[in-house]
Design a binder for these strands. Structure first.
Lengths: 212, 212
DNA sequence: ACGTGTGAACCGATTCACAGCA
DNA sequence: TGCTGTGAATCGGTTCACACGT
């Protein structure tokens, strides 16, 4: 019953993390029990969708009643794997990389930038937001030593492929890529892209198309 | 034949913008004619998908030959609407907002940050990357005057809903939201979310699940 | 009656298989 | 033969409709 079932939609994981935010908010408001409708009220997600998503992992609610906010929060954290701290490497400390270094939202989800790399001698050795910037030449040594599996990549488009190849050699298994190129990497490496220009372009298209 | 057909998948717009990048790259390499396979070689997209995507808008290739790189580039720009410059408002000039101000990738797609807003008196009147930072109190006046329809929102989670309500009143129709809250807005406003913490959390989940 | 949990129906999007043209 | 263009088949995911427990 509490076993993990076979095929789980890609989008389910993303939604689970939104449910988590909602539950945290309810918890702060001292709500002890909430229905699926309560939890999805401020997300653009239906209550059926929440119940379906949870059903892939088990039964967490009480029929006729709802969900215990604290318990469900814990269960979703366990499912997502963020019940323990995950260390992340940040590569490329330009403007965007610096913004990521300072982003407070990661901590809330037990995500911790454990090390930052750049190739600009002027930046090496400096500490920003409590994280020391290391030279990229030391990447293999440090990532292995800290057993880091996830990296955020905020380097230039020109060097993104080269750096990501290196990351894979270091044992990195997942990359959140902010550079505007598609990384070609082995099939067992999971890459997620954050592409602001493309995102904006889609908005332009929708705007043109939906209201003209 | 060149008419726009009825139902076009959501994802098609996003992919069109990736094809555009690929075509630009091919153009720089002086390639005049390219097959669908050439264009998708470095994107994780099949050549059939490209042809299907284009088929929603018309016939742009020559059978047995391929596509004229320059012409297709122009056609896709017309479809996306980025054949003309779009002005964008940036609201919230913290670390992330500053990074967005300096991001060069927008210009390539004819996207131009035309004005920036903040509420910190220390920042008002300063010019960064050639863009003057205005006080948020002047938002309605300036956005109306410049006829801006698209905004990027990089304010704190606490103020995101309030500021986006204001943006809608100013006549903004699309918002690219970087703050970690779901904005509740009228149905005719298109919102796209960039949520790094949630994105990373999905990576953790995939990592845990795929390789454990 | 209320709200969860879930098989079945449905829907949108991708992939297949092949017709059409150079 | 090579590559485009597209209806049809298929696939994955969401929504429906309702059984079930409190």
């Amino acid at each position: 019953m509490n076993e993990v079932k076979k095929y789980i939609p890609q989008e389910t994981a993303r939604r689970l993390s939104l449910y988590l935010r909602s539950l945290r908010r309810l918890g702060q408001e001292k709500v002890a029990v909430a229905s699926s409708a309560d939890i999805t009220r401020f997300l653009n997600i239906s209550s059926v969708q929440l119940r379906k998503d949870l059903s892939y992992f088990g039964e967490f609610g009480r029929r006729g009643v709802g969900y215990d906010v604290d318990i469900l929060k814990g269960e979703i954290e366990k499912i997502l794997g963020t019940d323990v701290v995950w260390k992340i490497a940040l590569v490329g400390i330009g403007r965007l990389g610096s913004a990521l270094l300072g982003y407070k939202g990661f901590r809330e989800f037990n995500l911790q930038i454990a090390v930052a790399f750049d190739n600009d001698p002027a930046k090496i050795g400096k500490t920003r937001e409590g994280i020391k910037i290391e030279h990229i030449a030391r990447i293999r040594e440090i990532i292995a030593q800290k057993a880091i599996k996830i990296a955020m990549l905020s380097v230039s488009a020109a060097s993104a492929q080269r750096v990501s190849d290196e990351l894979v050699k270091c044992g990195i298994k997942s990359i959140l890529n902010f550079s505007p190129v598609n990384l070609v990497l082995p099939a067992d490496i999971y890459v997620s892209n954050v592409d602001m220009a493309s995102e904006l372009e889609s908005l332009v298209y929708k705007l043109k198309r939906g209201f003209s």
